[in-house]
Design a protein around this nucleic acid. Structure first.
Lengths: 334, 334
DNA sequence: ATAAGAGTCTAAATCGTTTTAGTGATTATT
DNA sequence: AATAATCACTAAAACGATTTAGACTCTTAT
């Protein structure tokens, strides 16, 4: 029935050419010497008919979209959700929309998403990448697309990156436990070859080795995508089979799982047993006692990401890739 | 330098027409009587050159996109994040991509997002709506677009809706507190004219009136978008100025704020003071003692939403709008 | 020998924009 | 009076696909 309005309808109604309408739409009336009278008339008709340009056609023609694609591991993780929200807020104010999607740490899905964004001509890509998509990122760069990675770095790519010094943060957290006299400090981490994760392991290990406290048995690597029950069993085993007096969790969801186990086991977090979680979470503030955590500066990260993106988008000039690394903060809560 | 590959390049390389390539791409080779030899050859070239059709051009021509737009209040709220993730997962398996965006409960932004999705020709809209966008939704419906609302209903629209019976859930939770002998049952809710929220108030109020326990003073309506500190002060005031022996929180973030206050005040949740939160959250399981909660059936909601969307998309035939209302579940944890 | 039918493939229109390269009229310059 | 410059606007190509309506070549039937 009602075909959607096109620029042609406006041109027809106003008795001018399509070109004229297009110039007016794009604020080029002055520049292109369209008279005020015509401009006013066309604008009036546009408003009256409620015409909205078809962005698809526009993007097809111009090759850009005012849309920034954000690809994260899992949008239901507060870390990503918070960053996504902040980025969205700032981008929106600059006239950019954000569309986001989750990879679930699957290489295939990630490639798919990049392709989808590519074929939708997003203006920029913000990605928390995983191993295995290096060539895809490189392809984007070769295409002169704007790409900013965050949370995890990928080796061998000259690309903007915003992250946190996980090695240092993890070393600090571990050092704190050592300073508190802990002798059997466990690490519960995830079995993923992501730099961000391995850095945390390295920070932990190096620190303990220096204090001659390192014990490989106290490291629990939980397979990614393992069922929650399975993980629970493993964590419980760690706590029962070894006498552990402190534990560092490498991610907040691992820590939450760990706290669940402790609660079930009725094992208290107290003078004799200390816990530090990586990535703060509201749960840690409400737990009794409150749980210490390594906090990433979310606001700064989000801000830097969007700054990098916008600066690249606003100038044609090339600048070398920037690697921005923030320190994390150890929040002690006991 | 390297222009992106187009169907024309493939046609050229294969020595056939654009039409032929298009037919093959769309799996119509058989139907359109393209010989096996040509089909094979073209497919080989497509693979070799790594050609990917431009979805913009495709959408422009066909009017659809295989993309479903999901508009939620706040993607960093676990309720929405979880539903988003489930919907995404199921849609992905059917070949649909999801793009989501948050409204922050702002009418203008919501309209903006709907327009953006519209002009990107998304195939369907899944929206947790707010008051003030009724006409926009109606416009989509008039355009014969597929729309499914969830979480909140909008009066006067004939549109698919998936939600939960909040009145009943809230009444049940309140009734439980009454049955436990509570005499001064407070409600902490949000000052928003969203049916989903007012239903919770009504369920609470009706139940208490029936038991002659209703006391208007025990209702705290927190203004939406009020700072957290301000809310904290108000909640603390509620607890100190009135002798309250139970409290029902109308949202999980209110409950979390409330638990913070209780923790600071060193007020225990115990025989003399009972708490029920609305919308379950991991925090409630880890709090000591565990906090009871009204749980919405997320998986069922997500499943129903995507079922409705896909069923509408797969047939041209009209069917009347469906309103699906699930019961919530009261999870008692003490 | 010719028309009809089947089998393969394609030219060109179309979707709704942007943008380049003009056109024709009026005014200014010499 | 002829030429140049300015003004106000526009025709048509292009972006990259899909799809309709045919074109061309062989067989087969009459």
């Amino acid at each position: 029935m009602k075909k959607t309005l096109s620029i042609k309808d406006i041109a027809l109604a106003a008795g001018v050419s399509i070109t004229t309408v297009s110039f007016i739409l794009n604020g080029k009336a002055k520049e292109k010497a369209i008279s005020d009278i015509v401009t006013k008339k066309v604008e009036k008709i546009i408003k009256e008919l409620g015409y909205k340009p078809n962005q698809l056609a526009r993007s097809l023609r111009t090759g850009n979209s005012n849309i920034i694609g954000l690809i994260v591991e899992d949008i239901s993780n507060p870390f990503f959700a918070t960053i996504a929200k902040m980025i969205e807020y700032k981008a929106y104010k600059k006239g950019y929309k954000i569309i986001y999607s989750s990879t679930e740490n699957e290489v295939e899905k990630t490639k798919d998403l990049i392709n989808m964004f590519k074929s939708r001509k997003v203006d920029a890509y913000i990605i928390s990448p995983i191993k295995g998509i290096e060539e895809d990122i490189q392809a984007l760069l070769n295409d002169h697309k704007t790409v900013v990675l965050f949370d995890r770095d990928l080796d061998g790519l000259k690309v903007d990156y915003v992250g946190v010094d996980h090695f240092k943060a993890s070393a600090e957290a571990t050092a704190h436990l050592v300073a508190n006299g802990r002798k059997n400090i466990a690490l519960v981490t995830i079995d993923l070859a992501i730099k961000q994760i391995t850095d945390r392991l390295d920070g932990y290990q190096k620190t303990l080795e220096r204090s001659k406290l390192f014990n490989e048995k106290l490291i629990l690597k939980i397979p990614f995508n393992q069922s929650e029950e399975e993980s629970t069993i493993q964590i419980r085993k760690l706590f029962t089979e070894h006498k552990v007096d402190a534990v560092l969790f490498a991610t907040n969801y691992l820590a939450i799982g760990g706290l669940m186990v402790l609660k079930e086991m009725n094992k208290k977090v107290d003078q004799d047993f200390e816990v530090i979680a990586y990535d703060d979470h509201i749960v840690f503030k409400l737990f009794t006692p409150q749980i210490s955590a390594v906090e990433q500066p979310l606001e700064e990260i989000a801000e830097k990401i969007i700054d990098l993106v916008l600066s690249r988008l606003s100038t044609k000039e090339k600048r070398p890739a920037q690697q921005v690394v923030f320190p994390a903060k150890l929040i002690l809560r006991n």
